[in-house]
């Protein structure tokens, strides 16, 4: 169903290293910070998530930094299904989407029916976007059709909600597998492919994301369909975020430098972007004490 494409990890790393030598200064840095903020999915996915916690996160999404009211808001908040309704309610007058993880997140270890129910519940609560996980066990044991069918059915269950397919690359074992899973997810109907749940280490890394971006590019070249990309977990600094943007630009082109096609799944990244932003504007290095810790 899907071809295995050879990948040389050293070559991928060399390309990444070269991308990281790009020096992004002044106005291009400010543009990148602006973009990074607008591409952000502010995320809280803890067993301890309470209404209070979700409320704080949504407020942060609406107004990242009180000192700069003109600063752009983030793209979405990402929560568990039973927190969707609350988030939705807080964000109803904004352009910020609510994303929900689903399908027995993060392990995906349940029956297909329960996963479908999970998705339908999240959608009925108002989720604009569904972040599903693939069955890694099935994938690793070669049951590609099963993985494909699950994604395709979940895509149907999403209705008009956008589907992000989490590959959990940290469990896939090789770049070849990551490429194959990317191709499979796109073929099954993913609107986005996403690296990680954030619950497994390693999470997003530049080599992994480069391989996924190449898959997206090849898919676009052969089908004309633009699939989005979401690295999640492990991206904490503005510098990293900018390197990802360089990679997107030099792999997929300017079209993908857009929240509709690229997202950062992160929680601590927002404040670092804000600090850099303020530093660029004021020339002073900043302290986290001045940025809300939501």
């Amino acid at each position: 169903m899907i071809n295995r494409i050879p990948i040389d990890a050293v070559g991928i790393q060399e390309r990444v290293t070269r991308i990281c030598t790009r020096s992004i200064k002044r106005e291009s840095k400010l543009q990148a910070l602006d973009l990074a903020l607008r591409m952000m999915d502010l995320t809280t996915l803890e067993g301890s998530d309470s209404d209070g916690k979700v409320r704080q996160l949504c407020n942060k999404a609406l107004l990242p930094y009180t000192e700069l009211p003109n600063i752009p808001s983030v793209a979405a908040v990402c929560v568990y299904p039973n927190r969707v309704a609350l988030a939705k309610n807080i964000l109803k007058n904004s352009s910020i989407s609510v994303a929900s993880v689903a399908t027995a997140f993060p392990s995906g270890m349940s029956s297909l029916q329960i996963k479908l129910d999970d998705v339908e519940y999240a959608v009925s609560e108002g989720a604009d976007e569904i972040d599903m996980v693939i069955s890694r066990g099935a994938f690793l044991s070669g049951e590609y059709t099963k993985v494909y069918d699950e994604i395709a059915q979940i895509k149907q269950a999403c209705g008009s909600a956008h589907l992000k397919v989490i590959l959990e690359t940290g469990e896939l074992g090789s770049l070849e597998n990551i490429r194959m899973a990317s191709d499979l997810a796109m073929k099954a109907g993913a609107d986005f492919i996403k690296t990680s749940t954030g619950k497994i280490s390693p999470a997003a890394s530049m080599p992994v994301v480069l391989v996924m971006l190449q898959a997206i590019r090849d898919n676009y070249n052969s089908t004309g369909v633009k699939v989005g990309m979401k690295p999640a977990g492990g991206i904490r600094s503005s510098k990293q975020a900018i390197q990802y943007l360089v990679m997107v630009k030099e792999t997929l082109g300017i079209d993908w430098l857009n929240p509709s096609l690229f997202r950062f799944g992160a929680s601590s990244l927002a404040n670092d972007v804000l600090m850099q932003w303020v530093k660029e504007k004021t020339g002073r290095y900043q302290s986290l004490n001045y940025f809300s810790n939501d």
């Binding site: 040389d8 990890a9 050293v10 070559g11 790393q13 090789s174 770049l175």
Partner: peptide, 9 residues
Amino acid sequence: KTTWHPVSE
């Protein structure tokens, strides 16, 4: 003759 090859997973 010197031959190079990457080492990776």
